Amino acid sequence: MSNKHVVWHDHRITKEERAKLKYQKPCILWFTGLSGSGKSTIANAVEAKLHEMGKHTYLLDGDNIRHGLNKDLGFSDTDRVENIRRIGEVAKLFVDSGLIVLTAFISPFQSDRDSVRNLVEEGEFIEIFIDTPLKVCEQRDPKGLYKKARAGEIPHFTGISSPYEPPVKPEIYIKNDKIPLEICVERIIDYLQTNDYLNHG
């Protein structure tokens, strides 16, 4: 609900000026995929590489956010939508600060991912689909969640009792089944370099 007494306050320092100081083009690297697909692992490795290159970043991870900002939310479809809405608003602030923000969230609904894309300017939202077969995710099951979901202990579990809508036209598509982590990172860094996100000033 909007408040008519709340007025947007413009900053003296612009997003462009902040980005120029960091010599990079701010953007959201939005990693999406099933639980166990490798989103967080790849996002962490990409951030480490960007840090090594002297870039200014911040990583938002699904589990970590639910410990704080979104700890009041469950996993119903309604709560999932609100979870992504809040993350989108936070990511937008990071972009405004001139950072490259990486987000690792299942974010199962295309409409929610599109809503975040629409929060920022064209070219500032890079959807990265980590496409890992459900069978592989279940075999990995690093947190034992699939086993619990199959046993009916976790309702609304994406891929089992709740749907996942694959990205229609992701900027970066990674079939993460039998390829090394280094190759995944290389593909994402190559995209950023080719599209002038890392040499911008």
Rank of each mutant, 00 (worst) to 15 (best):
K25A: 00
T14F: 05
A45H: 12
G33H: 07
D10L: 05
F31E: 08
G38D: 12
N44A: 15
E17T: 02
N3T: 07
V46I: 15
G33P: 05
L21T: 08
G33R: 10
T41H: 11
N44L: 15
H9V: 12
G36N: 08
I42E: 13
I13L: 13
V6W: 01
W8M: 04
A43I: 06
N44V: 12
H11S: 15
K20Q: 09
G36M: 11
W8G: 00
I13H: 00
W30S: 01
K22C: 00
H9R: 13
K39F: 12
S35T: 15
T14W: 06
L34S: 06
G33C: 10
V6D: 03
V46G: 09
W8D: 00
N3Q: 10
L29K: 03
V46A: 09
N3C: 05
Q24P: 07
I13D: 01
S35A: 14
N44D: 15
T32L: 12
W30V: 05
E17A: 05
L29G: 04
S40E: 14
K39T: 11
W8N: 01
S37Y: 13
E17D: 08
H11F: 08
I42K: 15
K20F: 00
H9F: 03
Y23I: 03
N44K: 15
Q24M: 06
F31N: 02
A43K: 14
L34R: 06
N44T: 15
K20C: 03
W8L: 13
A19L: 03
G33Q: 09
V46W: 14
K22H: 04
G36I: 10
A45I: 06
Y23H: 10
H5I: 04
T32F: 05
T41G: 10
Q24H: 07
R12L: 07
S37V: 10
G38Y: 11
K39N: 13
T14N: 06
E16G: 00
K4F: 04
H5M: 05
L29D: 08
K22I: 00
N3S: 13
T41W: 10
A45T: 05
R18V: 02
D10I: 04
K15V: 09
S35G: 03
Q24N: 08
T14R: 11
K15Y: 00
P26F: 04
K4A: 08
E17L: 03
H9W: 01
H5K: 11
G36Q: 08
T32I: 06
K22Q: 09
A19T: 03
E17Q: 14
K15M: 14
S37F: 11
I13E: 14
N44H: 15
S40Q: 14
K25Y: 06
C27M: 04
E16K: 12
E16L: 07
R18H: 05
I28V: 15
D10W: 02
T14Q: 09
I28L: 12
T14S: 15
V7D: 01
I42R: 07
L34N: 07
A45G: 13
T32R: 04
V7W: 00
Q24E: 09
